[in-house]
Nucleic acid binder design. Structure first.
Lengths: 250, 250
DNA sequence: TGTGAATGTAAATAACATTCACATAGCTAG
DNA sequence: CTAGCTATGTGAATGTTATTTACATTCACA
């Protein structure tokens, strides 16, 4: 009957040795499969080969496990955004767009984390540590916006960096939620979520007066000649190159 | 012990008479309180004064109830967007912004519907009727974008309407999800979600070359003098009024 | 080595979703 | 008007989950 369980116990002894971590991993897998809603505490325990009560030695309840995962997600998220921003190299606008792409990439590549972070119904302030992690991640976007705002072409009013950051965040989150994950990805689109977001951000930046005349994602593997930051601040007339950030209009 | 139940039955007889509707209403209330995740089929039944098995005469399972609510939500959503768009009166840009506000208003005022529609984890294609309703709602935004795109100032490339629609949708959805509902609303913001979205859309439209020189939401109760549509298409230089759509920058 | 703190276990409780066999009411064909 | 079919409800299972509790096993260390 339960020789499997007995066997497993024999293999690893009475104590698991690393249960907390094992539970986190198991939960992550389950969430990836069935969503945060579908994941069950009992299943995670089973997957780790322990009884249903064991997890309570490591997490107050199901929600605490979830919030641990969300927190860890925000940490990885922050790391990826930081790497993407790369302190604004080679130039602020390029780096800024890379951040947007990193947002989508994270949503796509880490559906379990993204789900726990934004779609699990956890109250934002469930856990102070969680909230802090979330804010640290947002601060990357905010810092990038700060740098970008400082670059406002002369004569143009300088946009509030916080507002820009919130705008970019909402765009990235909107695209990710609606088009870039799981079921939502099934909506038929005329372009990929990445392209969609890139165009959106470029148009937005142009609306703020930033020159955004670069072609979208040139196919060539070689990086485009690093334009000196100064060229970004030159007085290019608003409106950008004909053709716009969305490719060739008819 | 169960005199309450007996009593209720006495009042209404063996048959409820309108159970399906009652269940939908009950579920709506429960979702508003505890979110789609927290709502239970059994609770809805109890609230309607019937046994736990009764609902199965009207819905295959819990998910079907949820998807019915989502569908109904999309229908109301469509109605509100349609009303907000008002066929583009008094002018396209104004009407377009009204649609954005209506999006937020719906998310704020109908949290239960919004939750079922976008946050319940229902697969987009769970139900053909649901999907159709969702598409009808989106088509309002799309039609509005179509009209707006046609207004592109001469000399400016005409943006693809579908893309614009998707952009606007993602902005509205992003703001609504992140800042405009329930727990998420607790994030501290320098401006209201409405203002945030309005500025975002205006900047975006300006980025497309549309003149957007109107002040944001003038405090005066009297409506601004209805500008003839033609004035929107006049060759106002891009860039808009100094000060930008976000109020007075320092 | 003895012992308290960690970590697991089994069993129990309470709530749900879902199914099934049966009860009742409404409506329709004769 | 009524026999009987169909729609709608009921109670009593079944199987699963979250969570608690009393008890068991180890670990670490004095």
């Amino acid at each position: 009957m339960s020789w499997r369980k007995e066997q497993r116990r024999a293999e690893r002894g009475y104590h698991h040795g690393n249960l907390k971590e094992a539970l986190l991993q198991a939960a992550l897998g389950l969430i990836a499969e069935k969503g945060a809603a579908g994941f069950t505490f009992a299943d995670a325990a089973r997957m780790a080969g322990v009884s249903a009560a064991a997890p309570y030695r490591h997490f107050r309840d199901r929600d605490e496990l979830l919030s641990s995962i969300a927190q860890r997600g925000f940490e990885q998220f922050e790391a990826r955004l930081t790497a993407a921003w790369d302190d604004g190299r080679p130039d602020t606008v390029t780096a800024f767009e890379r951040v947007g792409k990193a947002y989508l990439a994270f949503a796509r590549e880490e559906p379990a984390f993204y789900n726990a972070m934004f779609e699990s119904g956890l109250p934002v302030d469930a856990n102070p540590a969680l909230q802090a992690a979330s804010e640290r991640a947002f601060n990357i976007i905010r810092a990038a916006a700060e740098r970008l705002a400082a670059l406002a072409p002369p004569g143009t009013p300088r946009p509030p960096a916080m507002m820009m950051a919130l705008h970019i965040w909402s765009m990235a989150h909107g695209v990710a939620s609606l088009f870039s994950r799981g079921d939502a990805a099934r909506r038929k689109l005329p372009m990929s979520p990445d392209e969609l977001l890139e165009a959106e951000v470029l148009i937005y930046l142009r609306g703020l007066g930033f020159p955004t005349d670069r072609r979208p994602a040139p196919k060539s593997a070689e990086p485009p000649p690093v334009p000196p930051e100064a060229s970004s601040a030159s007085g290019v007339p608003p409106g950008g190159a004909p053709g716009g950030p969305w490719g060739k209009p008819k």
